[in-house]
Every structure is written in structure tokens, then in C-alpha cells.
């Protein structure tokens, strides 16, 4: 058996249960928590998210010890995965319902999609075109479908950090990454086989 322990950060976001369910079904040692000892004990950290940028950041700041988290992620390089809004808050700033400061772990801004008339939110299965290989995508085809639900997108400052793109009226970043930090705009926990594979890959990092 391995000693991997996943900590799903609990800050009152809606889809925590779904992320827990899939990892539990995959037989993983997983906990939903915001306690410092669980963040310290976790080998892999996941930040799920549904909802608006500002509200999410506010809840994160209120419920999670950011200094401890940042030390584990930035300094100790624990693999980190942000899902949907959990990816968006990695940016420096977000512009949903006003301007809000993000975690700033990957430089960029979160702005409303310009879809050229297509309805928002962007809901449904769409293909993720891989621009740059990473171990996170091992075994996935270059054009895999994942399930999306969002209206805002991560506009990166540094093209180096873009792993995959998706098209919905405009091309947007569906996967970003910097060192041990990964962000996915789609919901792997709702993306069946492809989602499971991506999560397994994430857990095999390190």
C-alpha cells in the first residue's frame, strides 16, 4: 500500500461531496478538511469549487490557513489541483461581480468568456486539446472530452503555463500548470473515465 493521503480543502464549496465520492470509489485515502494538521499530513491537495470568484476567495481566506497551505504548496511542492473556480482563484485577480484578489500562484486574470453569441454558462462535454504534455495527461487522447460548467475563464500572463485549450466561441485555457500546481476548468469528478484517469495521474505525481 502507498502512503498517499489526499486532502480536499473544505471551504463550504458545493461540489466537495462529488470530488470525495469519486476518489473514495477509486479506493483512495481521502479526507475533506480545512484543518492545518490534515493539510500538513496530505500528500496531495485538491481545491474544488463552484460559485463566484469573489465569494469563493472570501470563504477560502476565512476557513483555510493560507500561510500553512502556501508553505506546503509553494515551498514543499506538494501536488495541488484546483478544479473550476478552484483553478480560477489561482490567478492574481478575478473580475466576476467586481474586482477581487486571488491567490496569485499562477499569474493571470479571470474574465468573462466572450462567446460571440453562444449562451453562457458554457455547460456540457467539450474537447480539451492538449498543447503541452504533462504527466497529468498520461494515457489521455490529445482531444479528450470533459464536462464543463462555467462562464469565466483564466487568462494567463505566461503562455508557458498553458497545458490545454478548449473552444467555445473563443479559445480558452482548460488546463494550466506551474511546477507542482495544476488547474482544470472542467470537472474531472463528473467526467467519467477521462476524469478518473486524470485524477489517478494527479495522484501518481510525486
Amino acid at each position: 500500500m502507498n502512503s498517499k493521503k489526499i486532502c480536499i480543502l473544505d471551504y463550504g464549496s458545493g461540489n466537495v461531496r462529488s470530488v470525495f465520492n469519486i476518489l473514495f470509489a477509486l479506493g483512495k485515502d481521502v479526507i475533506v478538511s480545512n484543518r492545518p494538521e490534515d493539510i500538513l499530513a496530505g500528500s496531495h491537495i485538491i481545491l474544488p469549487g463552484v460559485g463566484a470568484f469573489g465569494t469563493s476567495m472570501e470563504k477560502i481566506k476565512k476557513t483555510i490557513h493560507l500561510d500553512i497551505l502556501e508553505n506546503e504548496i509553494i515551498r514543499n511542492k506538494k501536488p495541488f489541483l484546483g478544479i473550476c473556480v478552484g483553478m480560477q482563484v489561482l490567478a492574481d485577480r478575478g473580475f466576476e461581480f467586481g474586482e477581487h484578489v486571488g491567490l496569485g500562484w499562477i499569474h493571470g486574470e479571470v474574465k468573462k468568456m466572450s462567446t460571440g453569441g453562444l449562451p453562457l454558462p458554457h455547460i456540457g462535454w467539450n474537447n480539451v486539446s492538449i498543447a503541452k504534455q504533462t504527466p497529468l495527461l498520461n494515457g489521455l487522447s490529445v482531444d479528450q472530452d470533459f464536462y464543463f460548467v462555467h462562464s469565466y475563464v483564466f487568462k494567463e500572463e505566461n503562455n508557458e503555463n498553458v497545458i490545454a485549450k478548449t473552444e467555445y466561441g473563443e479559445q480558452f485555457n482548460s488546463i494550466i500548470s506551474k511546477d507542482n500546481i495544476f488547474g482544470v476548468q472542467f470537472h474531472p469528478e463528473k467526467s467519467q473515465k477521462a476524469g478518473k484517469l486524470l485524477l489517478e495521474n494527479f495522484l501518481s505525481l510525486r
Binding site: G14, N15, R17, S18, N21, I22, F24, A25, Y147, V149, H187, E189, K190, S191, Q192, G195, K196
Partner: peptide, 28 residues
């Protein structure tokens, strides 16, 4: 707990707390 795809739940929803309850149990 056994399905990992988007799930819609309907029937007998009358107020916001009915919705909240279903979403918190894993409905999307």
C-alpha cells in the same frame, strides 16, 4: 456515490432549501 457524471434531480421541489439539500448530496 456510484455515478460520476452530471446529475439533474427533479420532483417536489418547492423552496430554496429543497434545492440546497439536493445539490449538497451530489446533484449538479
Amino acid at each position: 456515490k456510484v455515478t460520476f457524471m452530471p446529475m439533474t434531480v427533479g420532483g417536489k421541489i418547492q423552496n430554496l432549501s429543497d434545492i440546497e439539500k439536493r445539490l449538497s448530496l451530489g446533484a449538479d
